[in-house]
Amino acid sequence: MIQGVQIDMLSAERLSKMTSYEKIRLILDDVRQGSVVVLEKGLTPEEQGKLLETTMMEINPGTFSGIEIETYPSSGSDKGFITKLFGKKSNVPRLMVIGPVDQLKMLSREKDRLIAWASAAQ
């Protein structure tokens, strides 16, 4: 097999049918095997908090050092129509990328563009 990184891309529709627990489990199981996960629709703040706590419980010095997680930095700078209309934007981010911290590096982070570098597991 060719050397590389497996990328698991989940559609918003697929995600909408999953429970929070299922999403977090799938993400961590994938990432711990060295895959990168791309979510078409990001996790809610509550789910992100749960993902963080679960990640912390599963970090094991030497074998799993945690996750890299990124989304378009929409918070704050996003003053769109909805924001004006309701005075508050949705807290669910757009696309979200999650990967093993020793394999996924964020190179740049702009409002509508993320550039990441993924390397194969050692």
Binding site: P45, Q48, I69, S75, N91, R109
Partner: peptide, 16 residues
């Protein structure tokens, strides 16, 4: 860099 995801996430949780 203030845009590090962990900051966006934490402020999102605090807002929620």
């Amino acid at each position: 860099d203030p845009f590090m995801h962990v900051n966006i996430m934490m402020v999102g949780i605090i807002e929620a």
